[in-house]
């Protein structure tokens, strides 16, 4: 028996979500009285995961697995599950994780709960809490199958150090043939993605036009944040679709979400509600966002944001 965690890497380096998934997996393994195994494909430094509770790392090095292919990966995860007699499989909520998890569930006859935000509240029956209704509610889901797949929501458990004496074992799974091929990957480098960001700075229609995003980007840069926007802003073509957050856009689960010139429509709030701390800057004191926010400034973004940038710069200089 074991708990298997799928590691995610970018150019060989583990993503932060892998540290979180490993921390979570370790906790689940403790509850079940078993051990953790992490499946790492083409990772540069597998032993880095011992810090977060990886008792064993299955280390796959294979040139043919350089680019992610969901069908191939789902099959490899299945081989790892069989080899390690895994009872639970934990997959993060990255784009690749969300892609592969349902395929894995079918391959291994497992029940699958996605968007899970907490450790199981009970192990017999096995019940996990998951987000539903775009974070307007939670669903305590009972998984009834012998093997279970858990999709872990980002930033829900946290990265917890739990050093163990881990081992790394080379693993050479067979690689199946597929008729689906990756032709090209266009990765924007140098910017923080919404998926990975601890802080997200988001602009709405109150910013009047795309030419005014300079201050949003500057604010984001100082904070090491990702930039995002409301739906009309992406529909108007002011910002790319990849920045659209909300119920019908990307979900945001950052530590800090700063909304500038966003009214706080129910569909917008639904997608960003899982952020821990929310700040709103809006001229209209009646804007619904103030009901959802922790901190607010009633004021004109064109005055407030430059001042905030200035104050943050001072803060940075004093805190280095």
């Amino acid at each position: 028996m074991s708990v298997l965690i799928l590691a995610e890497t970018l150019e060989g380096k583990f993503k932060k979500s892998t540290f979180e998934a490993t921390s979570y997996g370790k906790k689940v393994a403790e509850l079940l009285g078993t051990t953790t195994v992490v499946l790492a494909i083409n990772a540069t430094n597998p032993s880095e995961l011992y810090t977060y509770g990886a008792e064993k790392v299955l280390n796959v090095s294979n040139e043919n697995l350089k680019t992610f292919n969901a069908k191939v990966y789902a099959n490899i995860i299945q081989q790892a599950v069989e080899k390690e007699n895994a009872q639970i499989v934990i997959i993060d909520a990255s784009a690749n994780g969300l892609y592969v998890a349902p395929m894995v569930a079918v391959n291994i006859n497992a029940g699958y709960a996605s968007n899970v935000v907490a450790i199981p509240s009970s192990t017999t029956p096995f019940v996990v809490k998951r987000k539903a209704f775009s974070s307007k509610g939670f669903n305590n889901t009972e998984i009834n199958t012998d093997v279970k797949v858990i999709g872990l929501s980002k930033n829900s458990f946290g990265i917890i150090e739990n050093e163990v004496a881990g081992t790394t074992e080379d693993f050479s799974p067979s690689v199946i043939e597929t008729t689906i091929v990756s032709e090209k990957i266009e990765q924007t480098t140098g910017t923080v993605t919404i998926a990975d960001a601890d802080i997200v700075v988001s602009g709405g229609r109150g910013l009047k036009g795309p030419e005014n995003w300079g201050m949003v980007e500057e604010l984001a840069q100082i904070l090491g944040a990702a930039t995002a926007c409301s739906k009309p802003v992406s529909d108007l073509g002011w910002r790319p679709h990849s920045e659209h957050v909300g119920q019908t856009g990307k979900p945001v689960a950052s530590n800090l979400y700063i909304a500038i010139g966003i009214s706080g429509a129910i569909q917008h709030l639904a997608g960003i509600n899982s952020s821990k701390v929310k700040v709103v800057i809006n001229t209209d004191a009646e804007a619904p966002f103030f009901k959802a926010a922790d901190y607010g400034i009633v004021g004109d973004a064109f005055e407030v944001v430059p001042k905030l940038i200035e104050k943050l710069k001072e803060f940075k200089t004093n805190n280095i």
Partner: peptide, 20 residues
């Protein structure tokens, strides 16, 4: 089915916004 809903919950109500 492989999973069932044991129960639903609503998000905790949050405290008032601090205005700066």
């Amino acid at each position: 089915t492989a999973t069932t809903t044991a129960s639903f919950e609503k998000p905790a109500t949050k405290s008032a916004c601090k205005i700066v």
